[in-house]
Design a protein around this nucleic acid. Sequence first.
RNA 1: UGGGGCGUCGUCAAGCGGUAAGACACAGGAAUUUGGAUCCUGCAUUCGGAGGUUCGAAUCCUCCCGCCCCAG
Length: 350
Amino acid sequence: MKKVAVAMSGGVDSAVAALLLRDSGYEVVGVTMSLGVDPVAGEKSKCGGLRESADAGDVCRVLGIPHRVVDVSSDLESKVIGPFITEYLRGWTPNPCVICNRLIKFGSLLNRVLNWGLDGLATGHYARIEKDGGEWFLRTPKDLRKDQTYFLHALPRKILPGVLFPLAEYTKNQVREIARKAALPVSDKSESQDICFIPRGGCAEFLHDRGVRVEPGEIVDQTGKIIGRHRGIACYTIGQRGGLGISSPHPLYVLAIDAARNRLVVGEKGELKSGGLIADRVNCLVGAFPEVAWAKIRYAHRPAKCRTRYREGSLTVRFDEPQEAVAPGQSVVLYDGSTVLGGGTIRQGE
RNA sequence: UGGGGCGUCGUCAAGCGGUAAGACACAGGAAUUUGGAUCCUGCAUUCGGAGGUUCGAAUCCUCCCGCCCCAG
């Protein structure tokens, strides 16, 4: 592999990824995905906006590599945003980043890049790809604090040979240091970003603008007693505490979302535990799921030991220790040590 | 309008003459490539109102207002 594209978001990580590849002898092209949305004045810039695209361009200039912008807005709309809205209607909590990685970044963008005649696509993800005994694996990076494999579990296994994660061996601090030393214009940009296609107003407003009925409804306790009102189901997710507006001796959390009745069921923290879950849209990154594995049910979740069963497209996970706030729509990702085994989309906790 | 009880932050609630706990909610921040969790900070110059007693009252007294209960 000699000629590669680096997906550049306009942030530090992808900038350093490009730098590292360039310095290790690759012929590098910077590619930035455009979502076709202009940032609102004064709003914090977001992935996919003009501002970020310009930053990426600046970095490429400093690095002396070409920069191309690819418009993925219609793809994003149909493959990510559409399903995102549909899932909210069902009372689920989608994870658009997982879908985007699979279908956009490592889907249409990767294809585009390959069509340009390049050999592969790199990103600034903190993750690792390794060839081991003739097989390719997705593994956790050196900086486990930043491990982003959770968001990458849905990549098709067969594309792994064409994917590079140059930051696999670096910590976030080292990355920033490298950026600073190289005087990259983005070296001290801030870390976080929310969902890239959700503008300032927040999720509820976005959904409303997209025609989703955001109707207030009842909040009930586990006995069915009405104890409050919610602002619309799409504003909540399982395990959520804030935003209920109900005072109680102990904090209340969303236990379940009943989309059919437009209701929220709430209860105390202890009630959030689930012994297991069922997932579908399963992606396997190894030959087969082992019976014992470690599962993450959210980003930044310490993997929980579990037993797995995969049958007819459905993955059943039983935790050794019950886990908190299993949320349909979120991903469950299975690990064996540093190896990502794959995962799926949670359909229900149980 | 006979008798009894109660009115302290949005809610629940300590306080019982010495200068307004706490919890929940809420707001802001930290953290974070989803949504959440979590953590930190803030949040009644004032105790239904008006007088009075006292060096000093949310705490004692008086009247008024508003609730609740038992009687009628």
